[in-house]
């Protein structure tokens, strides 16, 4: 497994997520797509940490694990974001009985 194949997979995942986030009209699906994009980023971060961390720093365990630590942070933030996002979705649903994103344009006015 090379760095390139890792990055290609991550790029594909990110593109899928981006497409879903921009194209799906269901808010739940959009949130899921955003999760996919997070995970694409996580994969990139971990892959870089595994393959291109500076040689000089390999001796030090903390430096080697920087990417992985970042990934865990991202997962945490993603969990928080989902909690908040779903809260907003619920509120939205209670007000409009709809989770269609194209209809949620009240803040424009």
């Amino acid at each position: 497994m090379s760095l390139e194949s890792m990055l290609i997979v991550a790029a594909i995942l990110f593109a899928i997520g981006l497409y879903g986030a921009l194209a799906r009209s269901n808010v739940i699906a959009v949130l899921m797509s955003i999760e996919i994009m997070f995970n694409a980023v996580n994969l990139t971060v971990v892959a870089f940490a595994r393959y291109v961390a500076p040689l000089a720093l390999r001796e030090e365990i903390g430096s080697v694990l920087t990417g992985q630590v970042f990934a865990i942070f991202v997962i945490t933030v993603a969990a928080a974001e989902i909690a908040l996002g779903l809260g907003i979705v619920f509120a939205m649903y209670r007000n409009t009985e709809s989770v269609t994103l194209t209809e949620a344009n009240q803040l424009r006015h």
């Binding site: 986030a21 921009l22 994103l101 194209t102 949620a104 424009r108």
Partner: peptide, 14 residues
């Protein structure tokens, strides 16, 4: 330009 469509904004950002 201000449509209120969050996905349109996202597309513009991208």
């Amino acid at each position: 330009v201000q449509t209120g469509q969050v996905q349109f904004y996202g597309a513009v950002i991208v």
